[in-house]
Amino acid sequence: MKRQRWPLLSVLAFGYAFLYVPILLLILYSFNESRLVTVWSGFSTKWYGELFRNTQLLDAAWLSVRIAATNATFAVVLGTLAANAMVRHRHFRGRTGFELLITAPLVMPDVIIGLSLLLLFVAMQQGIGWPDGRGFTTITIAHITFSMAYVAVIVRARLLQLDRSLEEAAMDLGARPLTVYLRITLPLIAPALLAGWLLAFTLSLDDLVIASFVAGPGSTTLPMVIYSSVRLGVSPQINALATIIVAIVTLAVLIAALALRGERARR
């Protein structure tokens, strides 16, 4: 039975074109001489030069990277704990509430998270004098709050796949619960932890709305700079920035794919 696959494949092709053509155009026009994005007037790398002289943008990028890395690290710890709780302590009082709390940030609109956290920080500052001003700390806390939910989902899926008898075998051989977790469980879920870290990092680096709410004056993240520039219309510098981001991501994915293939070949 040979099925006609061409209608399906043409939808697939259209879908990928839809996803990738805008990005490719963005990259193409980052090498355009002209300031007008739609008119091609010759190859040039001058926008990259301008990008690297744009200290405001570079400062914002550095701040964003620092926030993203701190956020990802905390989010992995908290998200993994939450995943442990959901998979390993199946029955505890308030479990439904716990799961609701873990899943809600996944779909909660950014404006709500941003607004509510800002109001919390304002109230806390009034009440207990902390946080003193808003910036790195408040943005990081806000990002951890929603990133940990993503990490929890990823780690939980991995924990559910894990063969319970591996941990039982370790316990049977005399390993205490903490030893079992550190020597058996953690190494086996390590790929999920890495994926969770990278995802949390990206989510943080990508966030405009929440950061806009909880940032203070003088703490401008990269998306905030991009946003204010984009609002004024198309800017070739942003194209250049986009190209660099796409290049980094593609490179990372290629390395990951090669590493994966190497791992498979070794087996």
């Binding site: 990005i23 155009l25 963005l26 739609t38 991009i226 198309v234 986009a242 990372a252 994915v253």
Partner: peptide, 23 residues
């Protein structure tokens, strides 16, 4: 991978890409 890949690049920039296309 190709479906997930755009997700790892900046959301804001991907939306911005459409301004140049649709204006």
């Amino acid at each position: 991978m190709l479906i997930i890949l755009p997700f790892w690049t900046s959301f804001l920039i991907r939306v911005y890409a459409w301004i140049g296309i649709l204006q």
